[in-house]
Amino acid sequence: MSKSKILDSIRKNQPGAIPLPEIDPALFADEGNLREAFTSVLTAIGGNVHAVNSPEAALPILKAAFPDAAKILCRVEGIDLNTVDPDSITSAAELDDLDLAIIPGAFGVAENGAIWVPESALSRRVLPFITAHLAIVMDGSQIVGTMHEAYPRLKDFREGFGVFIAGPSKTADIEQSLVIGAHGPLSLSVFLI
């Protein structure tokens, strides 16, 4: 059987034990305002960041930014824009014409503008990828400095799927010309409360 064959070969060939180093997050921590750093990095990678006082305050901004959005799926309390019942969706194909998805983000990472989105924040895993435009609403106090501080927060995470989202989808596969909007959303709006 291949499993034992592979493991035998590995055990025969692997070197003697080499110690595992400790990671000291303090070594990599930057000083400065996390919210400002997060906003500036996320803007640089193509995200639109808005500071708001409440989820409700995102409503007029979203309406102005996406005046033609006909099909909207919202997973955030306080933003009354849903045009579809999330529970009625039974396949990815039914979301193909989704114009806008609005979802909550768990926390952000200042060094790279990434936002952690667990599966429980979504009605379906495909949601933040298949939508034409994506908006994430997040508590602005929930921002850590680096990825070394992000993973301790996920220590007890047991869900089947979660994703760090950093900006809109993009590609530069044609002669290195950057195009925002590849297979995922064409834009990302982030609302920091």
Partner: peptide, 25 residues
């Protein structure tokens, strides 16, 4: 934390890839 910090910066000069998808189940 270590490898996601290194990967995209070394690859394309991005702070991280747009999507880092964590599959478990």
């Amino acid at each position: 934390g270590v490898f996601l910090r290194l990967l995209a910066r070394s690859a394309t000069g991005q702070p991280i890839t747009t999507y880092s998808s964590h599959f478990r189940a």
